[in-house]
Amino acid sequence: MTASWKNINKPSSPTTAVTAAQVANGPVIPPQQRLLTYSPDEWEGFVEEWAYYCLPAKYKYVQRFSGAGDMGIDIAGFADDKRLKGVWDNYQCKHYDHALRPGDVWVEFGKVIWYSYSGEYAAPRHYYFVAPRGAGTSLSRLLANAAKLREELIANWDKHVKDEITGTQAVPLDATLRAYVDAFDFSIFDAKTALQLVDDHRATPVHTARFGGGLPARPASEKPPQEVAATESRYVTQLLGAYGEHTGSIVTHPSALSVPKLKDHFRRQREAFYEAESLRVFARDSVPPGTFESLLDDIHGGVIDTHDANHADGYEKVCAVTKAARDMQITANALITCTNPKDRDGICHQLANEDRLRWTRS
């Protein structure tokens, strides 16, 4: 007897419709879960990115050390030009399949002790262990008790530290080094969690590029001031010239616009320009550098043929070019999900402000 597949229990179907993004990319993986899949090198790259974008007020420079001879430094944040000889913080990156244990990092304590004792660098102001699964209970307790941490490091020195600091020599805890350990400030040691890093990183312009999940909500744009600002003078001058071509009269100031249709058009164009300016600011804070400039280039490339065609006058040219911008199909740029028709009109005027487009025939 042939079995019928229809009699086999089917898995339950999704309760909501599948989106195009889900079909293309699969389910969204939370950032903390995604970090667990990173290689150690990718993890260091993420921590470097976090320090660079999230701590700009804290550091003058952020530098990644990698390879042999890094002296126990992974990511360093320098507060002044003296770098390793000045005020700096170390972010020691660990990517294991478990929360960090004391046995995982005894040698790291030893390295910062030895290399600062040897004069290779000044002792860091802060020293953070950074691991996607964080510090385990035993290590967290030691990090919270500087005296106990010193005591345990000394007890573990011969077994876990002495022969692991360098590949060329053993580092016994002799009397002078022991005196340095006794005086060393063990309160500099702490740990950062992946949750802390992700929460900070969420506010950076590179977060969505790394983790996906869509752009944040875009705030409302500013309304144009009553008087034309210096930042918009170039495209406004061109617009007034275009209106002059249309009416056959010289228009040197918006107050000289007597035709209601043109007055309303001018108001809409200024609103569109400020809308596009708000998109520029939003892009600066929400997407990687160059994304907004790429959108300008896309729109410029899409309207330039219309721009260069013959038009009865400058006003007709403006109308034709902005319509071409609104009608364009743009699918690749990350900002396209949060743009509107006004943005496209405004971008045309941003291009005119840069003299990449001209509204008058001459």
Rank of each mutant, 00 (worst) to 15 (best):
Y128A: 02
Y128N: 03
V130G: 09
A131R: 09
A131N: 09
R133C: 06
R133A: 10
A135K: 01
G136R: 05
G136D: 05
T137C: 07
T137M: 08
S138C: 14
S138H: 15
S138K: 14
S138L: 13
S140F: 15
S140K: 15
R141N: 01
L143M: 01
L143D: 01
N145M: 12
N145I: 13
K148W: 06
K148F: 04
K148R: 13
K148A: 10
L149Q: 04
L149K: 04
L149E: 04
R150S: 03
R150M: 09
R150V: 05
L153F: 07
L153N: 02
L153D: 00
A155M: 06
A155S: 09
A155D: 12
N156L: 07
W157A: 02
K159G: 11
H160S: 09
V161W: 00
V161P: 01
D163G: 10
D163Y: 08
G167F: 08
Q169E: 12
Q169F: 07
V171F: 09
P172D: 00
L173W: 13
D174T: 02
D174S: 04
L177V: 04
L177G: 00
L177Q: 03
R178F: 05
A179S: 07
Y180V: 13
V181D: 01
D182E: 07
D182V: 03
A183G: 06
F184K: 02
F184E: 02
F186Q: 10
S187V: 08
I188Y: 05
I188W: 06
F189E: 02
D190W: 07
D190H: 07
D190L: 13
A191I: 00
A191Q: 00
A191R: 02
K192A: 10
K192W: 04
T193N: 00
Q196L: 00
L197F: 10
V198E: 00
V198L: 03
D199I: 08
D200G: 02
H201V: 06
R202F: 01
R202G: 04
P205V: 05
V206C: 04
H207T: 03
H207E: 01
H207N: 02
H207D: 01
T208M: 09
A209N: 14
A209E: 15
A209L: 14
R210A: 07
R210K: 12
G213D: 03
G213A: 03
G214F: 12
P216E: 06
P216Q: 03
A217G: 11
R218G: 11
R218N: 12
A220W: 02
S221K: 02
S221I: 06
S221L: 07
K223E: 15
K223I: 15
P224C: 10
P224V: 05
P224Q: 11
P225A: 05
Q226K: 13
E227M: 09
A229D: 11
A230I: 15
A230F: 14
T231F: 08
T231E: 11
S233W: 10
S233Y: 08
